[in-house]
């Protein structure tokens, strides 16, 4: 692998880790507060992509109007999932997860009903290539740069929100010990709704921003959710920093193996990585071991 290809692959991996981190951090947020692993999270990402397709491509409105619609619409879908499934299933540890598999099928079929099975490929407004630092090898489409920028800004904002605002404190308290938090007067159901809105909105943004880069189809969430699961296991369930770190690790591994060998081998590598972490260190790189 010569140096130019190496730099190019690094850049692609950075892009891949940014949208993966947006999806995975949302998944961790929801798990942290509700102890539910949301299998439908990849479909929230897909819903975000279709929102952009509808607003930006079909109605020819500005790109960022599409992103805004995606955030709002997907947050509403997330809220619906919380109210109709996760809250009633609160006492059943695998119940929420199984319900989310049902939600996954419903959302996929909904996308098929509204937009058809065929994948949509359409160009975004920032498609021209940008050369960074005057180095030819560091050429990337503007669209991917937007994804990277958004991921950095949104994840930074989330980090500050969780550490500086009262809501953020409450959310972290619930994630640490929901009973103790409830005793302090924190409303678990309001915090659950907040976590679901935030988590879903992050997936929606990721979907909307990547809709013009990858073909938008009803089953586009599938590889994303598998990647996100690998990330949250490797990073440690419940650890936001772990999810970001693992997104970078996984995306770089996956992109490099894809470039050197092929996509299937890269998928196998990712899954084996997750299995090794599950066996050797089930609480992940940055997670805390669960109390018995």
């Amino acid at each position: 692998m010569d140096f130019g290809v190496f730099l190019q692959t690094c850049l692609n991996a950075t892009y891949a880790s940014s949208y993966l981190a947006l999806v995975a951090v949302g998944l961790v947020l929801i798990f942290g507060v509700m102890r539910v692993v949301n299998f439908a999270h990849g479909e929230l990402y897909m819903a975000g992509a279709y929102c952009l397709f509808w607003v930006f491509y079909q109605n020819e409105l500005p790109f960022f109007a599409g992103v805004a619609v995606a955030v709002l619409a997907v947050a509403v879908v997330g809220l619906l999932l919380e109210r109709t499934m996760f809250r009633p299933m609160k006492d059943n540890p695998l119940g929420g997860l199984i319900c989310s598999i049902g939600a996954l099928l419903v959302l996929q079929a909904g996308a098929v009903a509204l937009f058809g099975v065929r994948k949509k490929s359409f160009a975004g407004p920032y498609n021209e290539a940008v050369t960074l630092f005057g180095i030819d090898a560091l050429t990337i489409s503007g669209q991917r740069l937007v994804v990277i920028a958004f991921a950095v800004i949104l994840l930074g904002a989330l980090w500050i929100f969780l550490r500086r605002s009262r809501f953020g404190w409450a959310l972290r308290a619930v994630a640490q010990d929901s009973e103790a938090a409830a005793l302090q007067g924190i409303s678990i159901s309001r915090i659950s709704m907040l976590a679901m809105i935030l988590g879903a909105a992050l997936a929606g943004v990721a979907g909307a921003l990547t809709a013009t880069i990858v073909p938008t189809g009803p089953y586009m969430g599938h590889p994303v959710i598998i990647g996100a699961f690998i990330v949250i296991i490797v990073g440690g369930l419940g650890s936001l920093e772990g999810a970001v770190l693992a997104s970078v690790l996984y995306a770089f591994t996956h992109t490099f193996v894809t470039t050197l060998f092929d996509g299937t081998i890269a998928d196998i590598t990712g899954l084996v990585l997750m299995l090794i972490v599950l066996v050797v260190r089930p609480h992940g790189l940055l997670g805390k071991p669960e109390r018995a």
């Binding site: 109709t84 499934m85 009633p88 299933m89 059943n92 119940g95 199984i98 319900c99 598999i101 049902g102 939600a103 996954l104 099928l105 419903v106 996929q108 079929a109 909904g110 098929v112 009903a113 099975v117």
Partner: peptide, 20 residues
């Protein structure tokens, strides 16, 4: 034909909620 997964999904959720 294409909406058959919808039925599976809805039924799974309904079963979990009302006929656990």
């Amino acid at each position: 034909d294409e909406l058959r997964p919808l039925f599976y999904g809805v039924l799974l959720v309904l079963a979990m909620l009302f006929l656990p």
